[in-house]
């Protein structure tokens, strides 16, 4: 199950040097700065970071769904041998919904309110698989059963407002899975849901990715939520990957000061005595005012002169292996040890 145990795993998605800019009144400002990411076949990647660090934009940009004022400046995104960022619009439409399924953050507003959910699930089937309506409805019933909706056949004719938030998110997942995608991108799919429903959705995706053998990218700001779900985690800070490691390794040996801060700010029951939640001081840099060196340096307690002057590259910790970190201090500490 774990991708690192296989030899030279095949990369399904390989993003290289992706930079995204936003047009502001003061000119273009970089939001995502030369990101490198990859997803192996059958692997589940968690992308973690605080609000505004560019997690969602990165994934939206891959499907070329960015809002008008935000543009990709440079980079490539190789998906199954083709570049998503330069392929023709008709090719892209086949990838969208066909090979890559998308699950959005807010199930309350991501379903068309005037369309029955059955019709919404049938839409990609009719479009991508050229299915007849009747066949598509049968498949839609199967999909609803697959995502754990009781009495799926009756539910086909329900409108979104007749379903609860958790049910709607299951419907969204069913739509994302409709065409057997090779990759499912879930953009904070549980943020709008109750904690118990969050756990159900996580379990559902965990079960489905094994059953369907697909890769999953799960975007979240909640490290603890996805600990049991993902194989590998990429930690994003201010539009760059600061640490990328198999999930057990990341929890056992967090190396970037930001990752450590994130892990420390997960509240634990044993902390009750302390009475205060730990947090990372300061705020991420604004898009137009990125620091010269490491973007985290202004908030970092370990920052040295070199951190403020040049950007640390994302390199394997200790020279090789799957654990990569972009931090001068962490790399040197390991050498010294």
């Amino acid at each position: 199950m774990n991708a690192m145990t296989m030899s030279a795993p095949e990369r399904l998605l390989d993003v290289k040097g992706l930079s995204i800019e936003i047009d502001t009144r003061r000119g273009p400002a970089t939001i995502v700065d030369g990101i490198n990411l990859h997803v192996n076949k059958g692997e589940t990647l968690g992308i973690v970071g605080e609000s505004g660090c560019g997690k969602s934009l990165t994934m939206l940009s891959l499907m070329r769904l960015l809002p008008n004022k935000i543009k990709v400046k440079s980079g490539t995104a190789n998906f199954a041998g083709r570049d998503l960022l330069t392929m023709s619009k008709s090719e892209l439409r086949k990838v969208r919904g066909g090979q890559v399924g998308f699950v959005f953050q807010d199930p309350m507003t991501s379903l068309n309110p005037v369309m029955r959910i059955g019709d919404q699930i049938c839409e990609p089937l009719i479009y991508h698989k050229a299915m007849k309506r009747a066949d598509a409805r049968i498949r839609a019933t199967e999909l609803l059963r697959l995502v754990g909706i009781p009495s799926p056949a009756e539910r086909l004719d329900a409108f979104p407002h007749e379903l609860s938030g958790g049910m709607r998110q299951r419907v969204m997942i069913a739509i994302g899975l409709a065409c057997d995608p090779e990759l499912l991108i879930a953009d904070e799919p549980t943020t709008a849901l109750d904690v118990t429903i969050q756990a159900q959705i996580v379990d559902l995706v965990k079960e489905l990715r094994v059953k369907l053998g697909m890769s999953v990218v799960w975007i979240t700001h909640d490290l603890a939520l996805i600990a049991g779900l993902v194989d590998r985690v990429a930690v994003l800070y201010a539009g760059t990957v600061v640490e990328d490691a198999p999930v057990e390794e990341l929890f056992a040996n967090p190396s970037h000061p930001y990752t450590r801060g994130l892990l420390a700010s997960i509240p634990k029951l044993s902390d009750v005595a302390a009475n205060r939640l730990s947090s990372i001081g300061g705020t991420p840099p604004e898009p137009g005012r990125r620091p010269l060196g490491c973007p985290f340096a202004p908030r970092c307690q370990l920052a040295e002169d070199i951190c403020r002057q040049s950007v640390p590259p994302l390199e394997p910790l200790g020279g090789s292996g799957p654990h990569r970190v972009a931090c001068f201090v962490a790399q040197r500490q390991l050498e010294a040890a």
Binding site: M63, G97, L111
Partner: peptide, 10 residues
């Protein structure tokens, strides 16, 4: 969001 979702369906 449902328009973005529809575009994401291709």
């Amino acid at each position: 969001p449902y328009i973005t979702a529809a575009r994401a369906l291709g």
